Amino acid sequence: MTTPARRSFTGTEARQLLRRGRTGALGTNNLDPTGPYISLANVATDAVGHPVIFISKLAWHTRNILANPSGSLMVSEIPAEGDALTGPRVTLMGEFQPVPAAEIAERYAQHHPAARFYLEFPDFSFWRLFPQKIHAVAGFGRIETMEPDEVFLPESAAAAVMAGAPSAIAHMNEDHADAVELYATRLLAAAPGNWRITAIDPDGAHLSLGDKALRLAFDEPVSGPDGLRQAFVALARRARESDVKPSDK
């Protein structure tokens, strides 16, 4: 595969946008009437960055996927004001495949705490999109079409981080709770509180307080325990040096 020497919007940036995203426009092939069908779905990501959705059999999009697994998903960040088209968005085109709940349910719930109320509903199921092509737009002139290996991490690169994630989460929450709160208040402008790290992947972590969930991004992907430790230390240093004031919300 030949790629440009310098992307105007990189695969890592596209993956981080997917990590931050909470919802997406889901495109499936409708059965009756035939044609494209667009719906709204909550979105999370697995260890390597592939998007995962959790959908009910009562929904048209689930019926469509069961009949034809090809589809697309767009995750976007719409500016608070001004032209919505200036915000970055990533569209993934590929095929949906079912994911066992035991593999992904807890991670999904860390991103969407409200989903715990219906995680065990028998008519809901998890589906992962394996993209064949990714189209990313990050503003005027920043338009890129990428292959999956540009955007998603290798399984081997993610495995070491995910294996050490439980102990790292426990260590940060038990021994560095002050730093975790600084991540939330100084880096993510959240209100003070007993913020906890609930999930980790090579690109960052999820922070939770009650039903609130935030995404904390690392400066660059990490590949093992040492990189994970260094990433948290660097973020703590930045948080302590930041002059951002916590939100009252």
Rank of each mutant, 00 (worst) to 15 (best):
W60H: 08
D123F: 04
L153T: 02
R116L: 13
N42S: 12
R128L: 07
Y37T: 02
V48G: 01
A160H: 13
F96W: 15
P88N: 13
E81M: 08
P69Y: 06
G27E: 00
E81A: 08
A138W: 01
S76Q: 09
L153P: 04
S156R: 05
D83W: 09
L85C: 03
K133F: 12
V151I: 05
E155L: 13
L85Y: 03
T45K: 01
A101W: 02
A67C: 07
K57S: 09
A41V: 15
P113E: 13
G35C: 10
F152I: 06
I78T: 15
Y37N: 09
I143N: 13
N68D: 15
V75C: 14
S70M: 14
N30A: 10
Q110C: 15
L73G: 07
H111R: 15
H135C: 05
I78V: 15
W127P: 04
A158T: 01
K133L: 15
G27R: 02
D46T: 11
F130A: 08
A109I: 10
A67E: 14
G164Y: 06
E155H: 10
G87M: 03
M74Y: 09
I104T: 09
K133C: 08
P79S: 10
V137N: 11
S70D: 15
A157W: 05
T62H: 13
R89H: 04
G164P: 11
E81R: 11
K133G: 08
D83G: 03
G94M: 10
M93D: 07
M74K: 09
A105M: 01
L85R: 07
T86C: 05
P131G: 15
R89T: 03
D149E: 13
S56L: 07
H135M: 14
R128V: 02
A157I: 05
L66H: 03
A84H: 04
W127A: 00
L85N: 07
G82W: 07
S70L: 14
F130P: 00
A109N: 06
A44Y: 03
T28K: 00
D83Q: 08
Q110E: 12
Q132I: 06
T34G: 12
G139Q: 09
E150Y: 07
P98I: 01
V75Y: 01
A158L: 05
L58V: 11
G71E: 11
F152S: 03
I38N: 12
T145H: 03
R142C: 08
D83F: 07
I104L: 10
A41M: 14
E77Y: 03
E150V: 01
P131E: 12
T91Y: 04
K57A: 09
T45G: 05
E147N: 01
Q110R: 11
P51H: 13
Y37L: 14
K57T: 06
D32T: 11
Y118C: 11
E106P: 02
I53D: 06
I38M: 13
P33R: 11
S56K: 09
G27K: 02
A44L: 01
A67S: 15
P69F: 02
S167K: 12
N30W: 04
N30K: 02
E144P: 06
A101V: 01
L31C: 01
A59H: 07
L73R: 05
L66N: 05
R142A: 10
